[in-house]
Computed example of a mutant assay.
Amino acid sequence: MALEFLKHDVNANPSQPLLLHPAGEILGRIGSLETRLARNEREVDAAQAVRFRVFVEEMKAQLPPDAMRLRRDVDVFDSFCDHLLVIDRAIEGDVEDQIVGTYRVLRQQVAMSHGGFYSASEFEIGPMLERHSDKQFMELGRSCVLPAYRTKRTVELLWQGNWAYALRHGIGAMFGCASFPGVRPEEHALALSFLHHNVKVSGEWAVSARPELHREMDLMPREGVDARKALAAMPPLIKGYLRLGAMIGEGAVVDQAFNTTDVLVVLPIAAISARYINYYGADAGRFAS
């Protein structure tokens, strides 16, 4: 399925995705790896192929027949989101062959012009957005990295790209679904209970799973949760969010199609640990100016 992209310059309509970073393509670089936004339809197609390899071939997601036939994880959001790529320049071949990881990014201005955020299908995010009408939100999703590249430096590079992007667009908070493998929340009772008891959103950031989809995360009493074992049982992406200072929404959602149990991550920029702002800001700031 071909995707139609419009060409934008730096003064383009803010409700449309920005496919080229105004300060140049590169948002971060570590060794032979670099991160930047997808520039064209071919690169987005290659990112969708990476997503298919991870979500379908590895995690056993069930996509619509057309997507399965094309061997691409693709949906309607792809055509108006920005796509952050991790590229390994040490791989021989075209740039499409060098894409080893990706993140899908959706800014609030763009989302509101196209029917809303992806996460709204699982979580009641509307009240949170209304309470923070003075902030611009950014949704992160479809995060995946090929197995050989699931290293600390790849995760750091993805976050360097996200941070540069957030700085460029004046983002006040990030959020998005993060997943545990499988559709039985009880299998993740320790980790889910830790999240519920220790980092559940509250107050002005309160957000919960849609009532008809809500699955309890409070599966163990607080006193029965071993924090060290719970953190060891977390998917790396969720642990990375927690290190930055993220909170987790109330209730989980089972996604049968993707064979996952989802939680909502909420990360206000003001809550990000100062040491991480210093770490990422020192380098990513120059890419975002």
Rank of each mutant, 00 (worst) to 15 (best):
I87G: 08
R53V: 12
P14G: 12
Q62S: 15
R89N: 14
D73Y: 00
V76E: 15
H21L: 05
D88P: 13
A90W: 01
I30A: 08
D78T: 04
L27P: 10
L37G: 05
H83V: 00
L84V: 06
I26A: 04
F80C: 08
L18S: 06
V74I: 09
T35R: 03
N11L: 15
S32H: 12
E25V: 10
D66S: 12
N40H: 02
R89H: 14
A46S: 15
I99Q: 06
E41T: 14
V56P: 14
P14R: 03
L84F: 00
V76G: 01
H83Y: 06
G31I: 04
L27Q: 11
L85R: 05
E41G: 12
R72E: 06
L85H: 01
L33G: 01
R53K: 10
A23V: 07
I87F: 01
D88Y: 06
I91Y: 00
N13E: 10
V54Y: 07
G28P: 13
I99Y: 02
V100F: 01
L37N: 02
D94L: 09
R53G: 10
D88N: 13
M59Y: 11
D88K: 02
S79P: 06
R42G: 05
I91G: 05
E25L: 03
V74T: 12
D66H: 08
A61F: 03
A49N: 14
P14V: 09
L63E: 14
K60R: 15
D88L: 05
D75R: 02
V76A: 14
L33E: 09
A12Y: 02
V86T: 04
A38H: 04
L19W: 08
R104H: 00
D9P: 02
L84M: 12
V50D: 09
E92S: 15
G101T: 03
R89E: 15
V105E: 00
I30M: 14
E57C: 11
S79A: 15
L18M: 06
L20K: 13
C81E: 03
L70P: 03
S79F: 08
P65G: 09
C81H: 10
I87V: 15
E96C: 14
G101D: 06
E57G: 07
D45H: 04
